[in-house]
Amino acid sequence: MSQITPVFKREFFGYFRSPVAYVFLVVFLMASVGLAFFIGGFFKANLATLESFFVFHPWLFLFLIPAAGMRLWSEEKRTGTIELLFTLPITTLEAVLAKFFAAWAFLTVAILLSFPMVITVGYLGNPDWGVIASSYLGSILMAGSYLGVCSLTSALTRNQVISFVLSVLACLVLLFLGWSVFNGVLSAVLPVWAVDLLANFSFATHFNAFTKGIIDPKDVVFFLSLTGFTLFLNVVALER
């Protein structure tokens, strides 16, 4: 496992060697804060909470995380560097974990760079810091699960566009399963228990509790196990 460190470092700092990182960070922050202000009514609500900021994260991640994750493996395949990587003394699992953790760390940086929002509510009001902390935790965990899906789809193709489309679709399914409107449609054809079961596989269902300040081990386990499962499939896809 000691081989994870050099690959992690290369990947993580690799983001900042190209303009990709800066474009991503700016777009992510503008979109997340913009949604909170203009759609979520952050100011109008006159409440010292960040709920209107976090509520859009599942939807924002749907497009932004595939954009960040689509190149993970398809780029290596396209440029042939995968041949270089896998002839270094490193196992597939180490490589998958190193690349995943580097991308996750990058996304965590992006999420945490929204800290001026926290300062704002702290300055203007008296927010519940526990809720803010749990929302950040939930958001970071959810980002990991999205990224796991994207890393997997990226390992399936050398084409980044296909990788992006596949991961958006997969994430869309995982998100919609818990969306009330979609569940309403489903309940017309499926029994309630089946709809509940499906909703349990959704990002949104498990993320909501975090934004209310509840850290339920069930939700933490869901995100971590979904991430672990997609990374396991990722290893299988690469060793095929």
């Binding site: 290369r10 690799g14 060697r17 190209s18 440029t79 042939g80 560097t81 041949e83 270089l84």
Partner: peptide, 8 residues
Amino acid sequence: SAPAYGEM
């Protein structure tokens, strides 16, 4: 064709 990480 000697692949390498071009941005480094």
